[in-house]
Design a binder for these strands. Structure first.
Lengths: 224, 224
DNA sequence: CAGTCATAAATTATGTGCAATCATTGTAGA
DNA sequence: TCTACAATGATTGCACATAATTTATGACTG
C-alpha cells in the first residue's frame, strides 16, 4: 500500500498552502468557481477570513497566470473557458510535454519509475466513482515525470496549464471507458521509458494528450 | 519612408499604456531595473506618482507572469536572470515560435509580408549605434508574424518570454556582425514565407533562434 | 587591530479600514 | 416601451497601524 492517497494534489504542487492565492486556486481547480463567475473581493475576503487587499493581490497574481480576467472598474472573473480555450491549452501541452519528457527519459533513475507504477496501480484499483481521485492521479503521473526537469519555467508553465485543465473539467463526468483508455495509455508510456526509447515514449505521450483533448472537446460540444 | 519609427514597441505590444503595470514592465524590459534588484513599493509608488496598493498589485501580476519574484516579508525583486534563465527562455521560444509560425505561413495575406519587409528595410538602414531600435525592430518582426494567431494563450506567452529576453539583454552591447547576421536570418525567413514553404521557413526560424541564443550565451559568459 | 556577534534603530512589507469613483440595477416619468 | 434618473453595490486608490526584516551601531573576542 502506497501513501499516495494520504497526500493531496495541491499540497504537492504548491509550496505555500493556506494562503489566499492557493485557496483561490484550489477553489477554481475544484470547480467551486466556474468559468465566467464574478469574483467579488468583499465576498472572497469573508470566505477566506481576511481583508480585501490580500484578495486583490491574489487575484492579480492569478490574472498574470491566466486564470482570472479583469475588466476595468468591473472587477475580476474566472477566465472565460470555452471550447477554444481547451483547444489552446491542449495544443500548448502538446508542445511542452514531449520536451519535458525527453529529459526524464535520459535522466530518470529507478525510483521515479517505481512511483509511476504505483500511481498506475492505484488508478487500476479505483472504482469508477472516484472521478476526482482519478484526475488527481493522472496529474500526479505526469508531474512525477516532469517535476525534476531543469527548465523550471517550463515546469511551472506546465503546472498552470494543467490547473486550467482541471478547472475546465471540474464539473464534468468521466466515462469508465475513458478511464480505461487513459490507464492503457499511461502503460504505453511507461513501457518505452524503461528502455529509454525516446521516440516511442514521445509517440505514446503525444497520442495520450491528443486522445484526452479529443475526449473532452467532444464532451464539451455535447454539453451545450 | 514607413512610420514604424513613430510607434514605440510597447504601445504595440500592450493595450493599456500608462498603467503602473505597463510602466514597470517597460522599466524592466529597458533595463532600468535589472536582475535581482529590489523593487521597493514606496519608491515605486513615488516613481509612478501613485500609492502603494497599485504598485503591489502590479508586482503581483508580474509575479504571476514570471518577471518578478517575492520572498515572504521581504518584498519583491526582479526575477533573478542568469545564464540558465536565458537558456530556459530560448528553449521555450524554440518550442513556441515554430508553432506560431505555422499558422502565419498558411493564413498570411500580402499586407503583413509587406510590413515584414518594411521592418527589414529599416533594420538595414540602421547605423550600428541604434542598438535599442534594432532590438525593437527584431521583436516587432516576430510580433508581426505571430500577433494574429488564434491561440491567444501562446501569443501572450511568447510576448512575456520576449520581454524577459529584452530585460536580459537590456544593458548588453550588440556587435555589428551580429546585427548583420540577424538581418540575413530574417531575410532567410521571409523568402520561404512567400512560397508558403513550411519546412524551409521553420528551419530558418529555428536556426535564427538558435543563433541568437548562442550569441547571447557566449556574451554572458565572457561578461563575467 | 580586525573580525564577529549581539543589540537597537530605521526601513519596509503586510493587513485593515475608509472615502471616492464608477457601473449596474431598479424606478418613475414621458 | 423607451429614456432619464436615482440608489445601491463594488471597485479602486489612499492613509494608517502592525509586524517583520534589513541596516547600522557598538561591544566583545581572538
Amino acid at each position: 500500500m502506497t501513501d499516495n492517497t494520504q497526500e493531496s494534489l495541491f499540497s504537492r504542487l504548491f509550496s505555500e498552502p493556506g494562503t489566499v492565492y492557493t485557496r483561490l486556486l484550489e477553489d477554481i481547480a475544484r470547480g467551486v468557481f466556474v468559468s465566467g463567475d464574478r469574483l467579488v473581493t468583499t465576498a472572497l475576503a469573508q470566505r477566506y477570513a481576511t481583508s480585501i487587499n490580500p484578495v486583490r493581490e491574489a487575484l492579480k497574481q492569478l490574472q498574470g497566470e491566466g486564470l482570472v480576467s479583469f475588466q476595468r472598474n468591473s472587477g475580476a472573473r474566472v477566465m472565460h473557458f470555452e471550447y477554444t480555450t481547451m483547444r489552446d491549452v491542449y495544443e500548448l501541452l502538446q508542445l511542452l510535454e514531449p520536451y519535458l519528457l525527453d529529459w526524464f527519459i535520459e535522466e530518470h533513475t529507478e525510483a521515479p519509475l517505481a512511483r509511476l507504477e504505483a500511481l498506475l496501480e492505484e488508478m487500476k484499483a479505483l472504482t469508477t466513482k472516484d472521478v476526482d481521485r482519478f484526475k488527481e492521479l493522472d496529474t500526479l503521473f505526469h508531474w512525477e515525470m516532469y517535476r525534476h526537469h531543469y527548465n523550471r519555467d517550463v515546469v511551472d508553465l506546465w503546472k498552470r496549464q494543467r490547473l486550467r485543465l482541471l478547472a475546465l473539467h471540474a464539473n464534468m463526468p468521466i466515462s469508465g471507458s475513458r478511464i480505461q483508455t487513459a490507464i492503457d495509455e499511461h502503460e504505453a508510456i511507461i513501457a518505452p521509458l524503461r528502455q529509454r526509447d525516446k521516440t516511442a515514449a514521445r509517440a505514446a505521450l503525444v497520442q495520450h494528450i491528443h486522445s484526452g483533448g479529443d475526449y473532452w472537446s467532444r464532451l464539451v460540444r455535447s454539453h451545450r
